[in-house]
């Protein structure tokens, strides 16, 4: 086994999560914080860990309806995440626009500009639903690395 394979076999078990707020009302971000920080839901049981830099991320969780103002910035941060990566849309906002659909500042859905892998609808989704989505993203992550 080469060194690369050895690293891969370890990395597959511990992807790092990164969060992008694309104009969210913060409802979904609070639920994400809940899954990460509260021992009751503890996302680290799945081997994941939140990180502070896009350069360290493997799975990116995006909340919010991707407003016109924030679109370019989202793309810029997204480009910084090294490949392979898995994208999870959290909340109805990035998936369909949710209650903001049709607004003058919400002209697109997230999957118009970024390849999305998993959707977790809800306004906001409950922590268990987010864990379910992260588990789905983990399965995809295993096939990508």
């Amino acid at each position: 086994m080469s060194i690369i394979d050895a690293i891969k076999s370890k990395a597959v078990r511990s992807p790092w999560l990164y969060r992008i707020n694309a104009g969210s009302c913060n409802g979904c971000d609070v639920e994400l914080a809940t899954t990460a920080l509260i021992p009751r839901y503890d996302v680290e049981r799945l081997g994941c860990k939140y990180c502070g830099s896009p350069k360290h991320a493997d799975i990116v969780l995006i909340t919010g309806p991707v407003t016109s103002m924030v679109k370019e910035k989202v793309l810029r941060v997204y480009e910084e995440i090294p490949d392979p990566k898995v994208t999870v849309a959290v909340g109805v906002c990035p998936i369909s626009g949710g209650v903001f659909r049709g607004s003058y500042s919400v002209p697109i859905m997230l999957d118009d500009i970024i390849p999305v892998d998993v959707n977790v609808p809800g306004c906001p989704p409950r922590p268990q639903a987010i864990l379910e989505g992260v588990a789905m993203a983990l399965d995809i992550w295993k096939t990508r690395i």
Binding site: V118, N119, P121, G122, P125, M136
Partner: peptide, 14 residues
Amino acid sequence: NWSTAHRNEDKYKM
């Protein structure tokens, strides 16, 4: 029923 997570290809089947 809170279980809503799905793959993006099923977006319009939900």
